[in-house]
Design a protein around this nucleic acid. Structure first.
Length: 310
DNA sequence: GCGTCCAGGTCTACC
DNA sequence: GGTAGACCTGGACGC
């Protein structure tokens, strides 16, 4: 069924804001779902969101004359609760309330960051909107080369994703937890080549379905409590919990710890496991970038060629 | 062609 | 509480 336009939101473009860099980051990771469609000429993106009510909506976001316009497509009119939820999710996804001025003030004095902020001028983090979607990505990134992670994601969306047709486009959202909770582990493994991750993702889905805080509820908890709550999910360790959390964090894996070790002057001998250095590198990042460490991580990982680390 | 290693983690058994 | 080993799969590499 083709969804129809049911609402629109207009946000004033804040100072120091790049729409394109926020929704299409140079490193290539998707904004909300891997299947979203971007039209560079029209400065518009077709994507989608899942509301806390359980309803999914199509989203066309575009930039025009100093405004950020969001058109919403759904099967029927939104309730007032859904409209309020949506406004919050759009603000979060577009990063319009992020403290970028404070970050730039600090970055101008930082030897590493000052090299890259000009290139990425106005890029915002743009947080997750849906917990299970973020967890799907986190699980599929575990212990696999990037190509394999991408293949697993494509298969998961193809077989279990939620298809939305609107405004002449079709996009696919990450699967609903309910759908994965009901799927068989063998079937998940076979269709998506997920290996041992199939069992983990199904268990996570079952835990979510049986009652788990939303991202908004996790945001209200202290950062450490939110992280511990996420780590109650089977197959979610420290790295995945930090990656998914909406609190400022600095998730390092075996790949990124090597990048930040180089930038922060930590030598990792070739005969040592880089994972052993994660805590040390995290502590250095905390000391150096403090409350801006999360956005610093996003900037660095989107500027590896400029830093000579690609 | 075949065997081995290991990758953008996490859990569990064992000490 | 600390840590080695197992977990899926497939590409890279050595032989």
């Amino acid at each position: 069924m083709e969804l129809r336009r049911v609402a629109s939101y207009l946000f004033k473009k804040p100072p120091l804001y790049s729409f394109e860099l926020t929704i299409r980051k140079p490193a290539g990771w998707p904004w909300l779902t891997p299947t979203e469609i971007y039209d560079k000429e029209k400065r518009a993106i077709w994507s989608g969101l899942r509301l806390n009510s359980g309803r999914s909506v199509g989203l066309k976001a575009s930039e025009n004359k100093g405004k950020l316009a969001c058109e919403i497509f759904a099967s029927s009119k939104l309730t007032s609760d859904e409209r309020a939820d949506l406004r919050q999710k759009l603000e979060r996804a577009l990063g319009v309330r992020e403290d970028i001025a404070g970050f730039y003030k600090m970055a101008r004095r930082d030897k590493v960051l000052r090299k890259i902020i000009r290139k990425l001028w106005g890029m915002r983090e743009g947080y997750w909107n849906d917990l299970f979607s973020a967890l799907c990505l986190a699980v599929l990134l575990q212990m696999a080369p990037v190509k394999r992670s991408m293949d697993m994601m494509a298969a998961l969306l193809k077989h279990y994703g939620e298809r939305l047709r609107f405004d002449g486009k079709t996009i696919v959202l990450w699967p609903r937890a309910e759908r994965i909770a009901k799927a068989g582990v063998a079937e998940l493994k076979r269709k998506c080549n997920m290996g041992y991750r199939a069992k983990n993702l199904k268990k996570i889905a079952q835990q979510i379905v049986s009652g788990f805080p939303t991202l908004e509820e996790l945001e209200k908890l202290p950062p450490q409590a939110a992280k511990e709550k996420l780590m109650e999910l089977y197959g979610v360790g420290e790295y995945s919990a930090e990656m998914v959390s909406v609190h400022t964090s600095f998730p390092l894996d075996v790949w990124s710890v090597q990048i930040f070790a180089k930038l922060l002057g930590v030598k990792i001998p070739s005969d040592r496991d880089p994972r052993e250095y994660i805590e040390r590198v995290k502590a250095l990042a905390e000391k150096r970038w403090g409350k801006y460490k999360g956005i610093a991580l996003v900037y660095v990982l989107n500027a590896l060629p400029e830093l000579g680390l690609a």
